[in-house]
Amino acid sequence: MAVVFEKTKALTDVKLHYCPGCAHGIVHRLVAECLEEMDEVKNAIACVPVGCAVFANNYFNFDAIQCAHGRAPATATGIKRVHPDKMVLTYQGDGDLASIGTCEIVHAAARGEKVTTIFINNGIYGMTGGQMAPTTLPGMKATTAKAGRDPKINGNPLRVSEMLATLTGPAYIERVSVSTPAQVTQAKKAIKKALEIQKQGLGFTFVEVVSTCPTNWGLTPVKAMEFVRDKMIPYYPLGVFKDITAEEGK
C-alpha cells in the first residue's frame, strides 16, 4: 500500500475558513506543493492580500506578510530587492489586484520585478458580500448590479493577463483555471514554471487563476465550476500570454 496523495507539509494544519467549495483552497495547495517540490518552503515569503485570502498566512507553512489593500506587489518589490535570494510571491484576488491595486500591479510588472503574482479571478468581491468587481462578467448579477452588469453603465470587465502581456517587463504570464482535475494539473504546472522563472531571476511572473465564489454567485460548488467552464472561460480564455523562455528557444 502506497500513499499517492496526501496533504503537503507546506500547508499548516489550520482548518481553512473559506466557504465550502471555494477554489482558494485548491490554489493555496498548489502554491504550497510547488514550493515543497522545489525545496523552497523555508526560503519563501508570501505577500497576502485584503479579501477572502487575508488569512492565507495562517495556512501557508512559510513566511507571509499581510499587505495594505492592493499593495502586495509594492510590498513584494521591497522584500525582493532587500532579499534577492528569497522566493517572493503575492497572492491576490480580483478586488485587490484589479481594482484598488491596479496601479501597483501594472507598475510592478512594467518594472519587471522578479516576483511571482498569483491572481485569483472569480469576478466578484467575495469577503465584502458579493459586490461587482472590475472582472464581473456582463450580465452577471452582484449586490451592486442587481439586474446584472450593464457595460453601458458599469463598463467592461478587465482582462488583466492580456493587459500585462503588452508590457516589456513580465517574463511569464499564463491564465489557468481549476474547474476540472486536468485544469488543476495545468494550473500547478503554470505556478511551478512561474516560480522557476523567478528563481532564475528572469523577470516578473504572473499566473491568473479563473476561480469560483459559490456563495456570492448563488450556486452550488459543482454548479459554480460549470459556470467557470461555460461563462468565465469564454470571456477569460486560458493560455500562455507571454513566455520569454519560449521566445528565446525559437
Binding site: 500500500m1 485548491i26 481549476v178
Partner: peptide, 15 residues
C-alpha cells in the same frame, strides 16, 4: 484529492 479545496483527502494505492 486534486479538487478538494480543504486538503481533506488522502489517496492510497493498494498492491
Amino acid at each position: 484529492a486534486k479538487m478538494c479545496p480543504d486538503c481533506a483527502i488522502t489517496v492510497e494505492k493498494l498492491d
